[in-house]
Design a binder for these strands. Structure first.
Length: 454
RNA sequence: GGCGACGUAGCCAAGUGGUAAGGCAGGGGUCUGCAAAACCCCCAUUCAGCGGUUCAAAUCCGCUCGUCGCCUCCA
């Protein structure tokens, strides 16, 4: 298995430290509903996790919830509720979204507010060994003391300074120094520390959690490419300087970002589509195929057309899995060649578009074989296994058996058809269409599917 | 201003030296009472443009044009 690491800038052979792979992906700061950009990132890392397990490794996966932060405090103040309550609310909302998107849960979701002891221990350690300094109750990291600062973003301190819009903060020794511990203002959530009342800076919680739950060196650390700098860069220096061990993470993985249409990517929330909105309109498989049909490191443009294409594609796989087995036929379709292609694609830095292509090739072969009466049971199992276990698709069809109105109309139509009364039969079909379902006559009986949105 | 990514058919999108995957849409056909689904055939002599290296380039190099990201909160 090969993984592209942002740190080295190339694909590397994946060699975990042990049979149990340790992995950390930056989670959310819960102050509003998550949007489909979040869905993209977490679905991608979900598939990566699923594939690592599918390949035979064990995996320990941790994801943070940063439940104390400026934006949470601002938003909570506007709403007139405690910050922790707001964070709780949106954190629950996020978990519900992840479940709905069929994202496998992490082993544990530590919260920043629950890890204050570890955070203070780290900040103190960094002060003690000279990598951090306290000014007016806040503690800053001294970036000039680290020779390889910028190694993840592939930049140097000088190049960062050139033309950068950096707000000059009087307290900092160097403009690029970043906050480890922030002195709190009155009314803000705060904890007692050796430097007075305060709260964690932005980057420190991820380091603390990763070190505490996964160890000094983990195998994979991931997140959106917008986190490379400064978030992950800072995680690296503060962690490595605290533990004295390198590397903090062996492989750094970053997904490309979702772009919103050709229009202005307006910063106002009007342009953002929440996961809840998307799920209202499309099923999980549609959303997952939309995302997995492009490579995870490439940016992806949101478009209605692409979603509709993904919906049709999902439907194709779903229908294929539902075809009759012909299990009594002695001719069998062998899915191995397709399985091999799928695995080769996934082994090459999780090339899901190519893996999906292998699945569609298998689907075509299955349909061909099914038309010919060949036994497709094993091939179908392979298709379902790879699609569901690795790509996290559900391939679940909607059942209308519990709907008496639809069942009654189907019966009516069957009667007309047996009487060869095509006119009446077609009228009933139209009635069913008005109810949002399409009826298909197949050799094995009537099949009801949701009517396609045009 | 600095750093970086990208530009492949109507749309989405793989492919990083050996002659263009896959999905969607479209056209024709088989099947069907009609449909739908499925299947078959067709749909980029060509990979933004211009030069260069090479026996050979979408793939390497240079320039031009265009789009985007990061440098500030962000998956």
């Amino acid at each position: 298995m090969k993984i592209f690491s942002t740190l080295s800038g190339k694909k590397e052979q994946f060699v975990p430290q042990s049979d149990e792979v340790t992995m950390y992906v930056c989670g959310v700061t819960p102050y509003s509903d998550a949007h489909i950009g979040h869905a993209m990132s977490y679905i991608i890392f979900d598939v990566i996790r699923r594939y690592i397990r599918f390949s035979g490794y064990k995996l320990k996966f941790i994801q943070n919830v940063t439940d104390v932060d400026d934006k949470i405090i601002d938003r909570a103040n506007k709403k007139g509720i405690p910050a922790i309550e707001l964070a709780e609310q949106y954190s629950d909302s996020f978990m519900a979204d992840m479940d709905a998107l069929n994202v496998v849960r992490a082993d544990f979701y530590p919260r920043a507010t629950g890890e204050i002891d570890k955070i203070i221990e780290m900040v103190q350690g960094l002060v003690n060994n000279g990598y951090a300094y306290e000014v007016n109750g806040s503690v800053y990291f001294r970036v000039t003391k680290v020779s390889d600062y910028g190694k993840l973003a592939h930049r140097t301190l000088d190049s960062m300074m050139a033309g950068a819009r950096i707000e000059i903060e009087q307290d900092k020794e160097h403009p690029m120094d970043f906050t480890l511990w922030k002195a709190s203002k009155p009314g803000e959530p705060s904890w007692t520390s050796p430097w007075g009342e305060g709260r964690p800076g932005w980057h420190i919680e991820c380091s603390a959690m990763s070190l505490k739950y996964l160890g000094d060196t983990i195998d994979i650390h991931g997140g959106g490419s917008d986190l490379i700098f400064p978030h992950h860069e800072n995680e690296i220096v503060q962690s490595e300087c605290f533990t004295g061990k390198k590397p903090f993470a062996k492989y750094w993985m970053h997904n490309g970002l979702l772009q919103f249409g050709g229009d202005k990517m307006s910063k106002s929330l009007g342009n953002l589509i929440t996961i809840k909105d998307a799920l209202q309109k499309y099923n999980v498989d549609t959303i997952r195929i939309f995302i997995l049909n492009s490579h995870y490191r490439s940016p992806l443009k949101y478009s209605l057309e692409a979603f509709q294409a993904a919906e049709s594609a999902a439907d194709r796989l779903r229908r294929t899995v539902e075809r009759e087995d012909n299990a009594n036929n002695t001719n069998k379709l062998d899915p191995q060649p397709y399985r091999k292609l799928f695995i080769e694609a996934m082994d090459d830095d999780f090339n899901t578009p190519q893996a999906l292509a292998a699945l569609f090739d298998l689907a075509r072969a299955i349909n061909q074989a099914a038309d010919a009466g060949t036994d497709i049971s094993e091939a179908k199992n392979t298709l379902a296994e790879l699609a569901q276990n690795v790509l996290g698709l559900k391939l679940a069809s909607i059942s209308y058996e519990q709907n008496p109105e639809i069942q009654k109309l189907i019966q009516e139509r069957q009667t007309f058809r047996e009487e060869r009364n095509w006119k009446e039969a077609d009228d009933v079909r139209q009635k069913l269409a008005d109810l949002g379902v399409a009826v298909e006559d197949t050799p094995t009986g009537v099949k009801i599917t949701p009517l396609k949105k045009k």
